[in-house]
Design a protein around this nucleic acid. Structure first.
Lengths: 215, 215
DNA sequence: TTAGGTATTATTGTATACACGGATGCAGAG
DNA sequence: CTCTGCATCCGTGTATACAATAATACCTAA
């Protein structure tokens, strides 16, 4: 499962910067230079540049004559990403049900179990990480590398965007309950039901992030 | 419209390699080294590496202990990408109709005009380029950067994949006719019809690429 | 005082040098 | 003949030096 090579500085810088951009540490419109990032991160320009090229590819940053401008994602981006997820997450769910192995099912089940555990602890950080895992397990098991590569970045950005949305315990609770419902439908190999539950889950997540109201 | 900066070697290498991978010049499973690419392209490792990082991000290549392995896209990838397009190209079409300006419409119209022109000439290269433009104009005008960023790479890869599919004059003719039909529905601001025409277009493209038969 | 031009600076683009790690091949011992 | 260990080589990861370009600030002249 693990890559043969140890994580390079390039990769670390990429993930570090991506997290900082998505979490809002760098504000939209802010301009940073390569050298500034080098001194902040304590590495040379080579890994910084390679990370920036990847962030550029994801349109999280933009080149300007004065340096690199942070773009991040906007509320509209969030809605657009959710709209796309509403259309194709269905494919992932159906693929997962069709390809499901006992190991896949157990892994997904475990993720939800942990979520319920950390919910009782009010451990928001673990909850958010597990939320990511839940969906990524489905992506990884859907049988389509393309679909995985399309959905995973969207969900990653969405998740960071609503960073604060899951802080409220009630919302986290509903989210976990929805995961449980999806899992049950998947376990029953009822693809139609699982898809419908997933659709509701995404729509609720949009509501949670936008107006903070529960259905 | 043009970027403020001239195209860098990094970008050129990236596009060059991407084209060569998608067109099949590098076969799937083939292993290349950075130095080999450097001497082939006549540049140093820096731009080559930056290009490779981006190709890696798109899962067109893979790192191995012996060098960089070319992955490219498989027939299944092609189907998966088409399946995704079937679901979200609709969003782009609706967005384009909703945001359409006279300039947008003209640009799209011109693309189809040119296609009909080059069709009479049997100029396959121009036809393929214009096919790409047609869809990218829609992506660019759909009002969603996220949607554009999601669809454009898919279409780019799909287009290169069926590289040879448009060689046959009859198929090219049908494709252009379908573009004309989509354009007419868009011009009439009939989003539902445009979406339906687009759906047919994508499904026909799948058939054309896979079994080479026309509907 | 203002406008214009030049010099300086700041930042990126590219090449290259160095270091590290794994794979490979050869040699020697069993 | 085979297996193991060591040395060498090959390839990548990282740092840094150098070049080019564009912005900025300053100085001078009208």
């Amino acid at each position: 499962m693990m890559d043969y090579k140890t994580v390079s500085l390039s990769d670390q810088v990429f993930e570090h910067l991506e997290t900082d951009i998505l979490s809002g540490k760098y504000r939209r419109g802010e301009i940073v230079t390569e050298l500034q990032l080098c001194s902040e991160l304590g590495v040379s320009r080579t890994p910084v540049r390679e990370a920036l090229r990847r962030l550029f590819q994801e349109h999280l940053i933009e080149d300007t004559p004065k340096g690199t401008m942070v773009l991040g994602i906007t509320p509209k981006d969030y809605l657009d990403m959710s709209e796309i997820r509403l259309r194709i997450e269905e494919l992932a769910v159906r693929g997962f049900v069709a390809n499901m192995t006992e190991d896949n099912r157990k892994e997904l089940n475990e993720a939800v179990d942990f979520q319920e555990f950390y919910l009782t602890r009010g451990d928001v950080d673990h909850l958010r990480a597990l939320d990511g895992q839940f969906h990524e397990i489905i992506y990884a098991g859907c049988g389509s590398r393309v679909l995985q590569d399309t959905l995973a970045p969207l969900h990653k950005k969405i998740q960071q965007y609503r960073h604060n949305a899951l802080q409220a315990p009630l919302r986290a609770k509903n989210s976990v309950q929805e995961h449980r419902a999806i899992l049950e439908a998947i376990t029953a190999r009822d693809a139609d039901l699982a898809v419908e539950k997933m659709r509701q889950h995404i729509e609720n997540a949009i509501d949670r992030a936008l107006n903070g109201q529960e259905k």
